[in-house]
Lab assay of single mutants.
Amino acid sequence: GQVNVNNTTYTFPTPKLAKEFAQKAAKKYNLTVHVSGNTVTVK
């Protein structure tokens, strides 16, 4: 799974890890998680 945070893309071996990372990043920066297919964007 891929996660985009502040124009930086992070790649994870599983969608589960990507989702967990996205949720932590969203909480940390007070942003929202947007899911589109296999790509998760935090903005």
Rank of each mutant, 00 (worst) to 15 (best):
N7T: 15
N6V: 14
T41D: 03
T14L: 03
V35C: 04
V40H: 00
G1F: 11
K16W: 05
N7P: 08
N7E: 15
N6Y: 14
T39M: 08
T14V: 02
G1L: 12
V35G: 00
A18T: 01
T9I: 13
V33A: 04
V5K: 13
V35N: 02
K16F: 06
V5E: 12
T11L: 07
N6S: 13
H34P: 01
A22P: 00
N7I: 15
P15Q: 10
T11P: 02
S36G: 03
T32F: 05
K16Y: 06
F12N: 00
N6M: 14
F12V: 00
N38T: 09
G1C: 15
G37T: 02
P13K: 10
Q23D: 13
S36L: 10
S36W: 07
L31H: 09
L17F: 04
Y10A: 02
L17K: 08
K28F: 13
Y10M: 05
T9K: 09
E20D: 08
Y29E: 05
V5Y: 10
P15L: 11
P13S: 09
Q2T: 13
G37M: 04
Q2R: 11
V33D: 00
E20Y: 08
A18D: 00
A26N: 05
V33E: 00
K43I: 15
N6L: 14
K43F: 15
V3C: 13
A26P: 02
A25C: 14
N30S: 06
T32I: 13
K28D: 10
K28W: 14
P15V: 13
Y29H: 10
K27D: 08
T32D: 10
G37Y: 03
T9Y: 10
K16R: 09
T32L: 07
N7S: 15
E20A: 13
Y10R: 04
P15H: 14
S36A: 09
K24V: 11
Q2P: 12
Y29P: 10
V42L: 08
F12M: 02
L31F: 07
T8Q: 09
P15R: 06
N38I: 06
G1A: 12
K19V: 09
N6Q: 13
K24Q: 11
F21A: 03
T14G: 04
G1P: 13
A18Y: 00
V42T: 02
E20S: 07
N30V: 03
L31Q: 05
A18K: 00
F12G: 01
E20W: 14
S36M: 10
V3A: 11
T9A: 05
V3M: 10
K43L: 15
K19S: 07
T41N: 04
V35Q: 05
E20N: 07
T11R: 07
T8Y: 15
N30T: 04
T9L: 07
K28P: 01
N38F: 03
T8S: 08
V42M: 05
E20K: 11
N30R: 06
V42S: 01
Q2G: 11
Y10V: 05
N4A: 12
P13Q: 07
T39E: 06
T14S: 10
K43Q: 14
V33Q: 01
P13I: 05
A22R: 01
K24F: 11
K28G: 04
A22W: 02
K27R: 09
V40W: 03
T39F: 04
L31N: 04
V33T: 04
F21V: 02
V5G: 13
H34N: 07
V5R: 12
F21D: 00
K16S: 09
L31W: 13
T32G: 05
K24P: 00
N6E: 10
K19Q: 14
A25Q: 06
A18F: 01
L17W: 04
T14A: 02
V3T: 12
A22L: 02
N4D: 10
N7G: 14
Q23L: 10
G37K: 04
N38G: 03
G37F: 04
Q23N: 09
A22M: 02
N38P: 03
K19M: 14
T39V: 12
L17I: 07
G37E: 04
G1N: 12
Y29M: 06
T14F: 03
N38R: 13
S36Y: 07
V3D: 12
T39N: 05
K16D: 11
V3Q: 12
F21I: 02
P13E: 08
K19P: 00
N6R: 14
A22H: 01
K19T: 06
T9Q: 09
Q2L: 11
V35M: 04
N30I: 03
